[in-house]
Amino acid sequence: MAFIEISRLKKSFSGQEVLKNINFSVGKNEVVAMIGPSGSGKSTLLRSLVHLETVDDGTIVFDGRYLVKDGQYAPAHDVKKITSKMGMVFQQFNLFPHLTVRENLEIAPKVLKIQPVAEIEKRSEELLKKVGLIDKKNAYPAQLSGGQKQRVAIARALMMQPEIMLFDEPTSALDPELTGEVLQVMKDLAKEQMTMIIVTHEMHFARDVADRVIFMDQGEIVETGSPVEIFNHPKNERTKVFLKRVV
């Protein structure tokens, strides 16, 4: 069985259908890139997985457990438990500005007491080294560049030991010369077999890193396939038009 299984997902915002009957699944250790024009519903779909959006109908199964079944959500406690296995990285970073880099990483694990404090602190050191920001551990977010902020945000999400990482346009708010450092961290994660769903406008990155590419348009999944299939031999006319515009 797939790691994440999504079927017949529907959502409307004030009468506007943003997700129309979405079906797809993600396997363990798979890296999925979601591409498509803005307003196509990619971000909404991603946010639905961590319950930042509530869907109107459909089913989401995560590792055999229902987050929502035919539009009926699991009890709040179960929802929390299921979504706690997912880490999320936002376009706008959403770091906590009143906390240092290190505190940003440690606040949630410490408040939730998921591990002994010493272990949490050891882990935050390791992760900051991993994203190359150990020398910034006592800096405040305001003192960091966009690329550094996003790397902190990734490390912060990893602190909770997620089984899947969701990226919502992680490089869209960055200056072009800063996207590389963030993409590199994501590539490393992919190499370590992290399951990832990435909403992105970075076509080269999607081509290089993703196992599978999903093209969305107007609230539907139009086409899905390997990077080669989507980028080199797109079948659907809408996919072709979109790729011609962006590549």
């Binding site: 930042l52 929390k80 706690s84 959403n94 906590f96 949630a108 408040v111 999400a157 909770m160």
Partner: peptide, 12 residues
């Protein structure tokens, strides 16, 4: 976004 980040990290 601050509320969302906190929610995703599991804070109530």
């Amino acid at each position: 976004g601050q509320y969302e980040a906190a929610q995703v990290l599991g804070l109530n």
